[in-house]
Structure formats: C-alpha cells, structure tokens
Write a protein that binds this DNA or RNA. Structure first.
Length: 571
RNA sequence: GCGCCCGUAGCUCAGUUGGAUAGAGCGUCUGCCUUCUAAGCAGAGGGUCGCAGGUUCGAGUCCUGCCGGGUGCGCCA
C-alpha cells in the first residue's frame, strides 16, 4: 500500500467536497512536531477564491475529520492542514503487510517496462579499479529496485572490448609478451605489455602504424588476431567473475562493444541517408545547431580514416536494445562527466525516431581525503580487488577491537558481509550526483549512519528471536496489534512508508532515499528497543512487539537487499 | 571562449521538486550497561543556506548578475 497515494486521494476529495475545486492537495511528510503529513493545497487556493487561507483550510480539515485513516486533521500556521494517522489504522496496515510475504506491502509500478540497465562496463585486459566502483554498485542497486517494483530488467555489462587499445596489445604481446607470464596472471601481463606498447608507439611511428594495422585486421576478422583477442577476453572474464562474485552482482547480458561491430556501417549509412550527419574536416559528424545546450561540438560517428567511434557504437547499441530486447527504456549508469555525450546521443536517437526512453544516471567522482581523485600513496589507481580486500581486513580488525563475543571463525565469515556492505552503503547513501569522499576511517568506524549500524539493528532483532526461541515465520499470521507506546507507533508508521520510498527510489534512480529510510528505521527500532521490552513484556503486548520486531527485521533485510547489501544473523 | 554541475554547522552530507522554527552523521561536552547485543540510547553546543538583487501569501529550493570551486568541449572510451 502506497501511503502517500492513499492520503493524497483522500485529501484531494476533501478539497473537492469542501471548496468545490479539483486542485492538487500538495501532500508532504510533515515535521513530526506537527503531524505525520500535511496538506498544503488550501494555500494557493486562497487568492483564487478570495478567501483567507485558514478559512479554506478549516473547511478541508472538517471534511477530513472522522476518516478512519486519521486520528486528527488540524489547521495550523498560515493554512496548513496537519494529519495524524490513526493508530488502529496503522496497526491494521501492519497486519496486512505481515501477511504479504512476497512484496511486503509494495505494489507494482503503474506502467511495467522492459528496462536495460547499462552499468559497470570494465575494459578487457585491464583490472577493475575505483573508477568502476560507483557504476557497479549504483547500477546493481537500480536493477534490484526496478525489479522489485515489477519491471523486467536486463542488466547489461557493456564491456570495453573493441577499442584502439587492442591493436597496441596485439603488437605488444608479440613484441614484449611472455607466454609464461600470460599463463600465470594474464591481466598483470597484459597491463605490463600495454604500458610498454603505448610508450613505444609514442616515439616509434612505425610501431604505432603496425598497431593500427593489427587493429584493422582484428576488425576484419583475421583469425590469429581474433584468437589472441579471445584469449584476452577469456582471461579478463575470470578476474571479473571473481570481483562480481565478491560483490554479489550478476548480469543478464555481457554485450561488449564488439557485439555491435557489424551494425556500425549501417548506422552511418542511415545517418547520412536521413541527412543527420555530414562531412566536416574529413570526419562524419552530427551537429546540434538548434540545441545550444549541447554545445557547438559535433558528435563524430566516423573518423577521417573510416574507423567508427564509441558514438557510433552507442547508437547501434540503442537500436540493438530496441530490436533485440524490445526495451522501453535504457538507463546508463555512467560518470556524470559524460553527460554531454549522452545528451548528444539521446538527441540523435530522437532525430532517428527511436521512441525509447533514455536516461543517463550520472554520479560524481570518487575523491580521496585531499579532495582529489582517489589514488594510492604512490599515485597509482586503486584496484577494486585490493579495495575489497582492505574493506574485509579493516572490518575484521574492527570486530576484534570491539571485543564482542565473536570467535575467529565468525569474524572470518562476517568480514566480507560487513566490509563490503560498508563500502556499498557509503557509496549509495549520498545523492549520487555529488562527488563522493572515500574515507576508510569513516566508513569502517561503524558509528552512526553506516552500513554496519543497519546490519547491527538486524542482528539484534535476530538475537531476540534466538533468545526467546521464536520462529519468526509464525508471526506472519498475528491477529492483533495495539500500538500503545509512542515508540511502537513511531516504528509502525516508519514501516508503512516503505512502499513510498521504494517507488520513489526506483523512479528517480535514487538509492540514497532508501538508505535514508532504512537508517531512520534502524534508529526508530533502537528507540523502541530501549523503551519497550519484548520478551519480558506482558502476553498482550509481547505478541505485538514480536510482530514489530519481525516486520522491522524483514524490511531491513529486504531493503538492504535492494541495495545489494547482505545481513548477518549475528554480529 | 562556449556548455554543464556545485557552494547548506568545524568536517562529510540530506533537504521529498516553492511550504511552518533549515535537518542527519562524524568530531566536542554531559549522562546511561546486575535488565532482549553499549557497533547502542538520552541530552547539550554548533548556521548571514557563497554575495547582491528579483519573482510571491511564502525562497536553501525558481529568475538575473557577480564571486569562488569542479568538470566537459573533432577524429580515445
């Protein structure tokens, strides 16, 4: 049940009945000091109806009084109508939520779509590094959110597997490569070779030319080059699978740039045929004269030497997603700095008459404590595998330090859940557009608004069930619930907001909204935990409190699950 | 030069698309474990929302202009 929708409908009807107009109720969650929600719709009507705003608000409030959902509807301030949910109604909704094992009270979206989510996108023959962190984590969360509200999601890993670097790699391997090193640690070796090859190509034009020729051969399907390239891919894939396994991230498709290679000439032909692209300084370009916000720079789809670019591939990719996946929408989880590229791409697709909804879900950079892009001490890019190792090591160290009743076996089991959960939560908790200051000390301090705090809230609840020898599943059929204590009511109301928050987060590709909700839930649970004994409560109260515990735990597990974060049974 | 983004507490960030007295976390200070996990809870302190105008019942939020920072812009992806 989407609480805000129900209230909005109610308020709209009240305005229509009381004031005779169909006007937006302007419902907002209220400052808790004032109420649960507020209806502000009377304010803008005052001028129109030439009446004092408080008079109009009073009429609306009178209409709302006595609604079973509400305990109070009161006029305040300039003409706000403050609503307070009725505890009995809240309890009824919670009982219904308890019975909904599959969706936990979250209804599906109104319009179900087929959505391709393009995220992560690492390069072949290279290690994944911090630069891939945000796209990978945010993209995965978006997939999970969209799926949960009923969309059909195709998570697609658009690998960088066909760029100009492969010419260099091919000549490089032949010139500098060691078969033994390639067998032992392929990516290590390929990165070494790539560095040497780039350096050499800079001061040896014939080497650079050779690389260009090998790339051309590869793209024509030359058997030797193709085989070598396949090896690069296979070796990289092994490493990628390890990382994604640790992150618990899975893709529905692995369609790299190479998948679209054969489509590129057709794309260029179509652009020319429709008069969208023209030659300029030897290259084939699309211009956007009528769209000043796209700047004066062209979208280059073919170089003067005839080669295609990522712009060309991206156009082909959209067409493929339309034709092959029958996608209604594509979401690109890519660094915000590429926004111009996507604006241009989307404009081209519009000009081509492709009706798909295209969204660039951008995000800010990962910065170090110094405010500059995150690097190792000696200025190297940080590998994702090393970053995840460190997260686990630090989490384990912190757990030992804390002196909890955990033995080494348990700490070893918990370290990945807690460490990687902390990394993911830290990334997801802020508005994705702002730059993200990566700070181990903060992340692993485990205080306040951090992943482990939420996991801890969950583990505490599980401890109650263990201690009381209660099977949580038996609570789903609880018949009665009274929310007599303030802390119970506050917790109950928070639980009911879940559907609103999940839908908002999914619609806006904004996982941080869900983080906020879960943090507030954990806080309210802690409050309840302090104020309301559960196992020691009187039988009448005990059942209801157990139900609240169970609902809170389940929502925490599901909510964190939507963020790709696991929960521990104890910690 | 042109475009986009940002500027909110000492630090890191929210701010539900224009609603009431701008909120969290960290850090600082003060309390709370013989009671379901203290990785917790309660309380205190901390603000010219970069600056100046404008729009209106109402502006951190919208418009204009400055100041300061970031980022992108023809043959890489």
């Amino acid at each position: 049940m989407r609480l805000e929708r129900s209230l909005e409908k109610l308020a709209r009807q009240a305005i229509a009945d009381a004031l005779g107009v169909d006007a937006p109720p302007l419902l907002k969650p209220a400052n808790p000091a004032h109420g649960d929600y507020q209806v502000n719709g009377a304010l803008p009507l005052a001028k129109e109806q030439q009446r004092p705003p408080r008079e109009l608000a009073t009429k609306v409030a009178e209409r709302l009084a006595g609604e079973p959902m509400l305990a109070a509807a009161e006029v305040a301030g300039a003409g706000f109508v403050n609503l307070r949910l009725h505890p009995t109604w809240v309890a009824e909704q919670l009982l219904a939520m308890a019975r909904d094992a599959e969706h936990e009270g979250v209804p599906p979206a109104d319009q179900l779509q087929r959505v391709v989510v393009d995220f992560s996108g690492p390069n072949i023959a290279k290690q994944m590094h911090v630069g891939h962190l945000r796209s990978t984590i945010i993209g995965d969360a978006i997939c999970r959110l969209l799926r949960f509200v009923g969309h059909t999601v195709i998570g697609d890993n658009h690998l960088g597997d066909f760029g100009t670097q492969f010419g260099l790699l091919i000549v490089g391997v032949r010139e500098f490569g060691s078969e033994a090193a390639l067998a032992a640690d392929a990516i290590e070796e390929l990165e070494r070779v790539y560095k040497l090859a780039t350096a050499k190509s800079k001061d040896d034009p014939s080497f650079a030319e050779a690389a260009r020729l090998e790339l051309a051969k590869l793209q024509r399907g030359d058997a030797d080059n193709r085989a070598l390239w396949q090896r690069f891919i296979a070796a990289t894939r092994v490493e990628l699978d390890k990382i994604y396994g640790r992150l618990d991230i899975h893709f529905d498709a692995w369609l790299g740039e190479s998948a679209y290679e054969t489509l590129l000439p057709g794309v260029v032909k179509e652009l020319e045929a429709k008069g969208l692209a023209r030659q300029d300084q030897g290259a084939l370009c699309v211009f956007f004269e009528d769209e000043p916000e796209l700047g004066k720079s062209p979208f280059i789809v073919q170089k003067k030497d005839g080669a295609f670019l990522y712009a060309t591939t991206d156009i082909a990719t959209v067409l493929y997603r339309r034709d092959h996946f029958h996608a209604d929408r594509a979401i690109y989880v890519v660094d915000q700095r590429q926004s111009l590229h996507f604006k241009q791409l989307f404009s081209v697709m519009k000009k081509l008459g492709v009706p798909m909804e295209l969204s660039h879900v951008g995000f800010g950079s990962v910065l170090g404590k110094d405010g500059k892009p995150l690097k190792t001490r000696d200025g190297q890019v940080i590998r994702l595998s090393a970053l995840l190792d460190e997260a686990e090591t630090r989490a384990a160290a912190r757990m030992r330090e804390e002196g909890l009743s955990l033995d080494e076996t348990q700490i070893t089991e918990l370290a990945p859940i807690v460490g990687i959960g902390a990394v993911k939560y830290a990334d997801l908790m802020q508005n994705r557009l702002s730059d993200y200051h990566f700070d181990w000390d903060k992340m692993i301090s485990f205080k306040g608004n951090a992943g482990p705090y939420l996991q801890y809230a969950y583990a505490r609840i599980q401890a109650i069930f263990r201690k009381g020898e209660i099977d949580p599943k038996s609570l789903a059929s609880t018949q009665a619930l009274t929310l007599a204590h303030d802390a119970e009511l506050a917790l109950g109301k928070q639980l009911l907001r879940f559907a609103d928050v999940v839908h908002q987060a999914a619609e806006q590709s904004a996982p941080h909204l869900l983080c906020d909700h879960l943090y507030a839930l954990a806080r309210l649970f802690s409050l309840f935990y302090e104020a309301c004994p559960v196992l020691r409560a009187e039988p009448a109260e005990r059942t209801g409190r157990l139900l609240l515990c169970w609902l809170a735990a389940r929502q925490m597990r599901t909510g964190l699950g939507l963020l790709g974060i696991a929960v521990p049974e104890r910690m």
